[in-house]
Design a binder for these strands. Structure first.
Lengths: 357, 357
DNA sequence: CTGTTAGCGCGTTCAG
DNA sequence: CTGAACGCGCTAACAG
């Protein structure tokens, strides 16, 4: 909160009109009717005399005319923007999905508006309502925190209403909601990771999981459990630590992790890379060497985080592709049943989980 | 590109009406006039009988009514959303600014729509036009690539037109454009970094800069030069390497960096952290040890990138605060002159630049 | 307190 | 090919 601070050397600003030019102004200036102006500006079916087109375009240029998007879509019933709802902008998991969504949408000539829930279901509900009211073409939701509470069913109802009005909801997750979805294969990926780690000779595990048992991230815990079960290994409750889905979350969990638990653990699996990195930092500052004292694996395999030291074992998800597929679903014709796309993930073994002798 | 893939077990979707309910539907159902319905829904000045309010709300609920945002703003001339234009979503520099913008905007009850230029000026122009047409309350631009070309002046004209129509443009950078701005102190910060490095005993420098001499990042090169000049050290052209503003950019530059140049260099300054990390990875794979063989510094001090090994020296900018201030400017009354806010940055010396002997 | 009427800015019939 | 007139969904005047 700095003070207003008007810089002394700053530039004078030209003061002009206050109201934006409308198509009527353009028409008047061009000396044609408003209808003709409209036709000239957005090549309608009807033809307009070349000369008039030129005059209108000239006038528009002159007046710096831009159509009023609200009025336009009021009239046309437009649905020309895609809404993307994510939990957190600064989390690379979400920003890579966003990248994919934006790129693919642009290819289709659509614009994307990104908004953030901060993992609050109430905010998600509010946003869905907003986009419904804005007549967005599709609403893509990545990482909804909704479990089964009060708000959760309101959200579902809102999305159903949105679809009833002709919108398209696309879920990025594992959820069995009645909407189209892009599945990340979290469960399968985590199972594969567990098996890979077993293959490397690890036998004693701990998991750094999300704050509660809701959401798609929990599928990673589940899958990991299943993978271990194949070797008759179970995860005791004390071996599943919970924290926020962030660097800080992983850091906190690892900082507070019981020393004897660390002692007994050969490898820690954090359900996403950010948490893994937080844990890595915390372990390091506790004097616990990774991977010498304890190995570490993450999930998502987010690009710039790959080259930590030691390099982090993770499960790669083609996040950009996930975003792109969500757009494709959102733009496709809606069938009678929900459509599901899924992507392949792959275990990336690196230095943070060396083979155990 | 996966095939449509309709999952067999997927859920049946309820098919309903196709047109969204309007306020007329609500009014009819409640048995009141459309005007009363409007008043009941958004508590206007006039009072409405309690019973009617209840009937209207009930009907709205029943019909799953949501106001048509376009029609609403067509009528009210609304300006209730803030537009944020950034270069890249996946770059933490921008996503942290976005975080600040979104949080602060939410405090003011405004929504933010984020969009991305991919550093293409033409795309920036298109977006500004879009937001002008959408009557956004303010347009906040972070990291505009605009230099002085053809598009650059079009962009400027577009922004001026936008302001003439009552919008507010806010620039996040160092630019001397006639718009309000949040200054990052790039030049000052880079100068301070140079001086700190000199203080540590470094005498031979190289810089990894942006792809060209446009934009705010170039101020960092300039400031760095100024800092060195104080010790009578100049940066030869061969000591300024240019690459893309990304991990890949830094990686490429460092990969292709002349071996003898590395030999002669004591410390490399990359104009942002992402590039620094890319360079770090490249150097490492070339067998050049950091900081033993060459030291390394970045800029921005972006959060989750701090705990690399070695920890990266950088210049911290309070990015969230920058975003917040941009919102404050965008929402403030416009004065006759452009307003400028500035934030303090601070050099963070870490293991990647140890003191020399 | 309410209903009727008049626009907001635009695209689009329907006559010329 | 063009203009006059209408209506999208909504809010805000104006009369009751």
């Amino acid at each position: 909160m700095t003070s207003p601070g008007e810089s002394g050397t700053s530039i004078q600003r030209p003061a002009k009109r206050r109201r934006a030019a409308t198509i009527v102004d353009v028409a008047r200036m061009a000396g044609v009717s408003q209808a003709t102006a409209s036709r000239a500006l957005n090549g309608s079916a009807r033809k307009v005399k070349q000369e008039n087109v030129a005059r209108v375009l000239e006038a528009a240029q002159q007046l710096n005319y831009v159509p009023n998007a609200s009025a336009q879509s009021t009239r046309r019933g437009d649905r020309s923007t895609i809404a993307l709802i994510i939990s957190e902008v600064t989390d690379p998991y979400f920003s890579w999905i966003a990248e994919g969504v934006i790129e693919r949408a642009e290819l289709e000539g659509m614009h994307v508006t990104v908004s953030v829930t901060k993992r609050e279901a109430s905010r998600e509900l509010e946003l869905i309502r907003l986009f419904r009211s804005q007549r967005s073409r599709a609403i893509i939701i990545a990482g909804s925190p909704r479990g089964s509470g009060e708000v959760a069913s309101e959200i579902r109802a809102e999305l159903e209403a949105y679809e009833a009005d002709g919108g398209r909801a696309v879920d990025i997750s594992e959820s069995g909601m009645p909407f189209d979805a892009v599945e990340l294969g979290n469960r399968r990926g985590a199972r594969a990771l567990a098996q890979s780690l077993l293959g490397l000779g690890y036998l004693r595990f701990a998991v750094i999981a999300g704050p509660d048992e809701r959401g798609a991230a929990e599928d990673r815990v589940l899958g990991f459990r299943e993978g271990l079960a194949a070797a008759d290994i179970e995860l005791a409750p004390s071996q599943v630590l919970r924290g926020a889905f962030s660097w800080e979350g992983g850091h906190t969990v690892a900082s507070e992790m019981n020393a004897s638990l660390i002692e007994q653990t050969e490898v820690v699996f954090a359900v996403n890379d950010m948490m893994a990195l937080g844990a890595l930092a915390a372990l390091r500052s506790r004097g616990v060497a990774v991977p010498a004292d304890v190995a570490l694996a993450g999930y998502d395999d987010v690009a710039p985080l790959r080259d930590t030291v030691p390099a982090l074992t993770s499960v790669r998800i083609p996040l950009k592709q996930v975003g792109a597929q969500a757009v494709e679903l959102g733009l496709s014709e809606r069938g009678a049943r929900t459509a599901v796309r899924s992507v392949e993930s792959s275990v990336q073994l690196r230095a943070s989980t060396p083979a155990r002798h």
